[in-house]
Amino acid sequence: MIIKCPYCGPRDVIEFTYQGDATRKRPEPLSNDPDVWNAYVYDRSNPSGLHREFWLHSGGCRQHLVVTRDMTTHAISSVAFARDIASGGQA
């Protein structure tokens, strides 16, 4: 699998570290709702088809990327900096 890092260019997957589901939203820090936190920490979906996930370019620029990947074909349809998306940008 090749991930096109927006900073470093296309690189082999061995340079990256998988950092989990990028569709989850961390609850408000002050929330004490155990169900909400439990869902955030433990529940993961395993969709057949497109999925968004975090990959850290650990052997490159060390930025987290949001990679949109088809779970059935491993085809990557978009890659963006996680920071940009977390700041309100679109993938």
């Binding site: 990028a22 930025q63 987290h64 920071r83 977390a86």
Partner: peptide, 10 residues
């Protein structure tokens, strides 16, 4: 790095 990039970019 994860928290700065993905959760708290501000």
């Amino acid at each position: 790095e994860y928290y700065l990039d993905c959760i708290w970019p501000e």
